[in-house]
């Protein structure tokens, strides 16, 4: 059970290292800002009391929650990147890794333990942030999505995929290079999603195809889009159409293969990471 031992030490690390003090501070700042933004939007907008062709309050509330989902995703990604970007090469160069790997546990156990710890912390964190956003939105607008569990889990899975890719990168790249690469990869995924939305709005199959291929290659983006989509699932008619036009509307339907693909993808990235890490001189 050395896997769990190593995972637990990641939690201890989070609770003790001084850099991690910024996590609650930044999270509180983000949530405060989110609360402020939602409150302002609802205080300043003049919603017509006559029922129109679409529900303005609903459109605003769900768009704001989409923004909250994105913010949570971003912070969760930063956290998991921070927890995984030095695990192999960076820590080896510091000499942090050698005393541990030389113990009778095997490099595979080491990697899985570290990853499990980072994934657990980041997943709980991102789900907590998102839950706060849902509560804030409901408190102010009275609206909450029909389905919160699915987007929360998809968000968690998206963050875990970014972590798995960062861990793979950490086998080859030194600390800073890997951190930069991981965040750039994350940015690339986001751009891919935006290309898809633009493609859909412009009705351009080429753009949509580019986006689709990239979402498969970087499935955290597909999961994020799917989370956005499932937020607004229950909203139909013109309201739903308008929401999906916005950047946080989640225009693309997730393909039914997304979940098996996510699991297979994680397994493949994991196996590759272990395979390369075993071959490395430390």
């Amino acid at each position: 059970m050395k896997v769990l031992l190593l995972a637990r030490y990641v939690l201890v690390e989070c609770s003790r290292r001084r850099v991690f003090i910024v996590v609650p501070i930044l999270s509180a700042a983000f949530l405060g800002l989110y609360w402020f933004a939602v409150a302002r939007v609802f205080a300043t907008s003049e919603f017509s009391s006559v029922p129109g062709p679409f529900d303005e309050r609903l459109v605003v509330a769900s768009t704001m929650l989409g923004l909250g989902l994105f913010g949570s995703f971003f912070l969760g990604v930063v956290l998991i990147v921070f927890l995984t970007f030095t695990v192999a090469r960076g820590d080896a160069e510091q000499g942090l890794l050698q005393p541990v790997v030389v113990r009778p546990l095997g490099r595979r156990t080491f990697l899985i333990g570290r990853f499990l710890g980072a994934a657990t912390v980041s997943m709980l964190y991102v789900i907590l942030l998102f839950a706060c956003c849902v509560l804030i939105t409901r408190g102010i607008s009275g609206w909450s999505p029909d389905n919160v569990v699915q987007p929360a889990l998809e968000l968690g899975a998206a963050v875990v995929i970014v972590g798995a890719l960062t861990l793979l990168g950490s086998v080859f790249l030194a600390t800073i290079a890997n951190g930069v690469t991981a965040l750039m990869l994350f940015g690339t995924g986001l751009v891919a999603g935006l290309i898809g939305q633009i493609g859909e709005a412009l009705n351009s199959p080429t753009l949509e195809n580019i986006s689709r291929v990239m979402s498969w290659a970087l499935p955290f983006e597909a999961l994020y889009q799917s989370a956005l989509t499932s937020l607004t699932e229950g909203i139909s008619g013109l309201s739903g159409f308008l929401i999906r036009l916005g950047p946080f509307g989640g225009a693309q339907e997730a393909s039914p293969g997304l979940y098996p693909w996510t699991i297979g993808y994680l397994a493949a990235v994991g196996l590759l990471t272990i395979w390369f890490f075993r071959r490395r001189d430390l």
């Binding site: 030490y9 942090l96 030389v102 113990r103």
Partner: peptide
Amino acid sequence: LGYLAELFRFPGWLTADEVLVLHQRLS
């Protein structure tokens, strides 16, 4: 085996005793 590397570091956030606890568990 017991090994002391030429260049090594223990996590700064552990105490001396805790470093030994960790290695007791690992070994």
